[in-house]
Design a protein around this nucleic acid. Structure first.
Length: 551
RNA sequence: GCCUCGAUGGCUCAAUGGAUAGAGCAACAGCCUUCUAAGCUGUGGGUUGCAGGUUCGAGUCCUGCUCGAGGUGCCA
């Protein structure tokens, strides 16, 4: 990446300047190379001299001059200039820029990939909603953030595993099984046998599920022994829900590598193992008949085992983390959590400490909740209030628009979706603007083929129009954007980038006719258009969206 | 009470401690005989919630305050 090359050059120049005594001794700082807001200033810039003024006790302009003096003039740079109050600006040569077009075309689907991950194994766990019902719209945000982050981490060189953690044990599962049993009995006309449980799940899907079960097994499950009964309905319900969830996420272009069972942590001895570990490390306290985790701070006590002997979800979380980071030995475990789980954050850190794990291996991406409105009035979401299924929103506005909308905002910002406006807003969704760019390009190539114009043996040096060069600059940013997203865990930048790239392309399309009588120029421009298409397509794919050939 | 997050143009939002705070929508004015007008060009619109502080430089970091969302269970 050219940005890294520049960083390295500045770094070296600073070292040299110190060696020859042009600059006093100080620890070399982290050098930031950025894109200036105004591209008239240059393609890249560094404010490093500004930050050094204090340590060097020199005027930043003077420092900048010294740095540039020792940088020499690499052949990919047309100009290195110093601007007040001490920026160093770099301008790339047109030649270097235009050559990038062929690099992009050669890389094809791989363009944008970089290797900062060094193939380290990283797990992204996301959604992980209780398998007790269809996904709610709020889970969509979790889904998109997790899926796109996983895409980006793959692209920057990590070996990524996507995992869905199924809470298939505990209170909610029990209630779910009881509800299913009651629905099943009812569809056989035996509701008196198993009345609807208190706080049971009201959703219609359970009525359907009960009916299906009755169709499949008849009355066989009515007279199971007490200890078998609930377990059976749990298992049936879980199987049904998981296949349902798989289909549901598949409609959003999401595919998990693994569906991890919480219960398996108890069945395979992981829980017993960590319990023993915690006991040996004096982390457990018995109080009021329950077992508490001491934690590292006073007053940070959490219950691990209830007074009735059943472990809490915290027990599972500890065992699960152990499983991720020790048993399966992932370099890092990324958790995508909604703000309603933010209590987890400190807890997971505590858990890592207790297990003697480097806390940096636990990465938490927290996003603010999505609230829903209808005609400007808030719609309460929750298990027992109005339920807005994700699938319904997707049905109404489409996967691409849904994904894009959920991805645009930064994770930290709360977002509101007005259901009555969703359809209307989706029609002006910027995703279409981006996809239109891709479709336009496809159209250009259809035309080129029809007219026998090809991009073979293109002389890229013919690309000199500012719109053309600007387009090249923007395609090259993809690598930087991906690195930035991986570093900051902020996948929303992909949407901004996609829109900017589309804007620059549409402007180019307006300014420069691609297919013309000038065959040499046509070939060069077709190459540029190809490179743009590759970049747009890769960006859309990273966001999990389609790349239409026509619109 | 304590903890987390937010407040940026009429609306929805962006912005690596850097240069003149940017997009889209909405409003207004232009551009199709030409590869897709789901496009392009232009205009207006801002004391970045309030008050301090740190810094050469703050929308961004720190402190206090106001308003909003969420958390603070032997629920997950």
């Amino acid at each position: 990446m050219i940005k890294h090359t520049l960083t390295q050059l500045v770094h070296t120049a600073l070292g040299t300047a110190q060696q020859v005594g042009d600059l006093p001794e100080f620890d070399l700082p982290v050098i930031s190379v950025e894109r200036p807001k105004d591209n008239k200033l240059g393609d890249y810039a560094t404010p490093v001299a500004l930050g050094l003024a204090r340590f060097a006790r020199m005027n930043p302009i003077k420092i900048a001059d010294i740095i540039t003096k020792h940088m020499g003039k690499p052949d990919f740079l047309a100009e290195i200039s110093v601007a007040r109050p001490g920026f160093i600006n770099f301008r790339l040569t047109t030649d270097w820029l235009t050559q990038q077009v062929s690099r992009i075309i050669q890389a094809g689907d791989d363009f944008g990939k970089i290797n900062i991950g060094q193939n380290k194994r990283v797990q992204v766990e996301f959604i992980s909603a209780n398998p007790t019902g269809p996904l709610q719209f709020g889970s969509g945000r979790n889904a998109i953030i997790g899926d796109v982050l996983a895409n980006v981490f793959s692209a920057v060189g990590y070996d990524i595993q996507r995992e869905y953690y199924m809470n298939d044990t505990g209170n909610q599962t029990l209630l779910f099984a009881q509800t299913l049993r009651s629905r099943y009995a009812k569809s056989l006309g035996k509701e008196d046998r198993f009345p609807f449980p208190k706080d049971g799940y009201p959703g219609d899907y359970l009525i359907e599920m009960g009916q299906k079960l009755a169709d499949n097994v008849g009355t066989a499950y009515l007279d199971l022994a007490d200890n078998e009964s609930i377990a059976t309905f749990q298992q049936e319900g879980l199987n049904y829900m998981v296949s349902h969830l798989k289909n549901e996420v598949a409609t959003m272009n999401i595919h998990f590598d693994n569906w991890f069972s919480e219960r398996s942590l108890y069945d395979d001895g992981t829980y017993q193992k960590i319990y023993q570990y915690l006991q040996e490390h004096d982390q457990l306290v018995k109080k009021d008949g329950a077992v508490w985790l001491k934690g590292n701070e006073d007053d940070e006590n959490y219950v691990l085992v209830r007074s009735d002997g059943r472990p809490t979800y915290l027990a599972s979380d500890i065992a699960y983390m152990y499983n991720k980071l020790v048993t399966r030995n992932f370099e890092k475990a990324i958790y995508i959590l909604g703000a309603d789980h933010h209590g987890y954050m400190s807890r997971l850190g505590t858990v890592a400490q207790i297990l003697g794990l480097d806390e940096e291996r636990v990465v938490i991406v927290m996003y603010q909740l999505v609230s829903l409105e209808r005609d400007g009035k808030q719609v309460r979401m929750g298990k027992r209030s109005e339920f807005v299924p994700l699938s319904k929103v997707i049905e109404e506005i489409g996967v691409d628009a849904t994904r894009f909308m959920l991805l645009t905002r930064s994770s930290d910002s709360q977002m509101t979706l007005d259901l009555s406006l969703a359809v209307q807003e989706s029609s002006e969704n910027p995703v279409y603007y981006v996809q239109y760019g891709h479709a336009r390009i496809a159209s250009i190539f259809r035309k080129a083929e029809a007219e026998g114009v090809s991009m073979k043996n293109a002389d890229l040096s013919l690309l000199t129009n500012p719109s053309e060069l600007d387009l090249i600059r923007h395609t090259l940013r993809l690598e930087e954007v991906l690195e930035y997203i991986a570093l900051t865990l902020s996948p929303n930048h992909l949407t901004t980038y996609a829109q900017e790239l589309a804007t620059v392309f549409h402007r180019f399309y307006h300014d420069c006719r691609v297919i013309s009588d000038d065959l040499a120029l046509s070939a060069a421009r077709l190459s540029l258009v190809k490179a743009t298409q590759i970049t747009l397509a890769n960006t859309l794919r990273l966001m999990g969206m389609s790349t239409p050939e026509q619109m």
